[in-house]
Amino acid sequence: MPRVVVDVMLKPEILDPQGQAVANALPRLGVTDVSSVRIGRRIEIEFTGQPDLDRAREIADKLLANPVIEDFSVRVADAGHAGESNP
């Protein structure tokens, strides 16, 4: 079933304390060359029929994202596997 993937990210000017906390933890892993981490949300939508990007955009704008603090993008995931999956 083709899926629409919605990515929601905090706007660049909005502070992301979660991302900062993760970035601050990286030196404990021995990682010292990361300057910034920002955390967002990925949502996969399956339509009963063909994937409808306009409809997905409406869903994202009204519910999945808060346009006051977040940006979003929508795309149809590759057939077979919904985007990239972990090995």
Binding site: I14, L15, P17, Q18, A21, N66, V68, I69
Partner: peptide
């Protein structure tokens, strides 16, 4: 009220988490 756009702005995660 903010989510419903009856008030402006938004409430986000406490800065210190």
């Amino acid at each position: 009220l903010c989510e419903a756009h009856l008030l402006p702005g938004a409430l986000t995660r406490n800065q210190h988490l």
